[in-house]
């Protein structure tokens, strides 16, 4: 019981810090930013964040470099042809899974 309370306290601390970080800009920045540079930066920021999150982290997402590379390549190809988020995500997963199966066959 004591341990459960301790864990609950940690979970609460984690949640509070995470929520404050998310909430502060939403509540504090209620006016449009005027600077054209800052507005441009905020426009490009999402794409920069997502790109930096994908590479290189994706290469260790499947437990094998080759399956990850094939999965990523399929994802990029599908995205170039404007497929939906779900199709691209499942396409990447399927490609990685099939590559993993093939690797096992030839080992």
């Amino acid at each position: 019981m004591k341990i459960t309370l301790v864990i609950a306290a940690y979970i609460l601390i984690m949640a509070a810090v995470t929520y404050l970080i998310r909430m502060a800009p939403f509540v504090l920045f209620r006016k449009k930013i005027r600077s054209r540079f800052l507005r441009s930066m905020l426009y490009y920021l999402p794409y920069a964040v997502l790109s930096a999150m994908v590479i290189p982290a994706v290469f260790s997402s499947t437990g094998s470099l080759l399956t990850a590379v094939v999965g990523l390549a399929v994802a990029i190809l599908l995205a170039v042809f404007n497929r939906s988020l779900l199709v691209v995500a499942l396409g990447a997963s399927s490609a990685a899974y099939l590559t993993g199966l093939l690797l096992q066959l030839f080992q």
Binding site: M53, V54, V58, G71, L78, A79, S93, G100
Partner: peptide, 28 residues
Amino acid sequence: GLKYALGIAIYGMFVAIVVPPAKRDRGV
């Protein structure tokens, strides 16, 4: 094998968000 393959799904989603605007916008 299935668990590992599911690990890449989230990255596939990011790719799907970035690639289409990057095709038409040089800034992106």
